[in-house]
Design a protein around this nucleic acid. Structure first.
Lengths: 204, 204
DNA sequence: GTCTATACGAAGATAGAC
DNA sequence: GTCTATCTTCGTATAGAC
């Protein structure tokens, strides 16, 4: 009798540690920022030895930050894509709701790791983290643009509208953290819904 | 013959150094972020000895960051207030133009120091920098809200619109830096002008 | 292949010489 | 009052033992 043993069961921490490290990095970056997040604390938080971090990520902190941004960007994109199946307005509501939940549930401690990496310069001149951030923003914008077009919006206007949504959400999350209030996200919700409704009526 | 000597001429670096330190901090924070800005480099950049920094700012880096945010916030508010005298649409255009100039002229290296401080946690649990950031956002929002109301907008809607403008601008500046392109700012310009025009027509 | 122990530099902050 | 020199802690990264 041949028993096939799952490789993951034998080496449960192999790729699992790696994932934990990336997810942990995304979480710490969105809370404290990129430069305030040390690889030391990161390893401790993921219960991995410091050396393991550099084993999994030979590129050091830069590589870790890049993968964390891509991870968070993809996660958000997946939610956005799923909710946009119910139409642009429902997608917008879910998008805003997701951010509102993050901000409120963490008592205004957490924001968006993609934004954090976008505005913080890594000491080294490596541009990979910025590029990953740009890719995430572009991805979200494209998802929104496509959905708007599918529901009758003018293509050029759809991209403008999608960009406005992404920009306003990112800005609002930051404002909410500074103000320790969900006011900004709540206020832009009203306006953005109107903007989306107007766009799919081809008003512009 | 009595010669009145200007105190500033005698001690030219007295308050001048202090101002330079604050302005330099605002510039470095908006480029590299709060935690990537060291007090050492700051002092060097302002040609002040490290010790002077702690003489002028006993509160250390936290105080310096707080004053830098307030400084930048007031400077922006002054420009916004001046341009809003020509109406909300002109004010919006000038506001967007100012940010576009900063981002493009620095080859996408500089952004907004208020945003940087909003999303970066200082190691110490001091909340003063966050409060200064919140005050800046509130101030800008109030200026826009007042202008919109003066031109016929509904008060509640005016605040929502003003919040959308501030949030979208902050988010766009960050996106522009990640993408190394002014695309985001240019795209939201079109939409925001429409939003403002609609608001002062009391359409909502 | 995994991790402990360490190297080396730079951070924030201060004590005390001028 | 101004600033130099220094203290302590923490950062990234790695060398080499298991």
């Amino acid at each position: 009798m041949t028993v096939v043993i799952d490789k993951e069961a034998l080496v449960p921490d192999s790729q699992d540690s790696r994932r934990k490290l990336v997810a942990g990095a995304a979480d710490m970056i969105r809370r404290r920022g990129l430069n305030a997040t040390s690889v030391r604390e990161l390893a401790k938080h993921a219960r991995a030895p410091l050396g393991s971090t550099y084993h999994y990520f030979p590129g050091g902190k830069t590589q870790l930050a890049t993968e964390a941004v891509t991870f968070a960007g993809d996660l958000t994109a997946a939610l956005l894509a799923r909710e946009l199946e119910n139409g642009p307005v429902e997608g917008l509501r879910a998008f805003l709701g997701m951010w509102r939940k993050i901000v409120v549930d963490t008592d205004f401690q957490a924001g968006c790791p993609v934004l954090a990496v976008s505005i913080e310069d890594l000491p080294a001149g490596d541009e990979a983290p910025h590029q990953a951030a740009a890719a995430a923003f572009t991805h979200w914008t494209e998802l929104l643009t496509t959905s708007l077009c599918e529901h009758g919006a003018d293509p050029a206007d759809a991209e403008h509208t999608a960009t406005l949504i992404v920009a306003a959400v990112e800005g609002s999350v930051a404002i909410c953290r500074a103000e320790r209030s969900s006011r900004a996200l709540d206020h832009i919700s009203h306006k953005l819904e109107r903007v989306v409704e107007d766009a799919i009526r081809r008003d512009s």
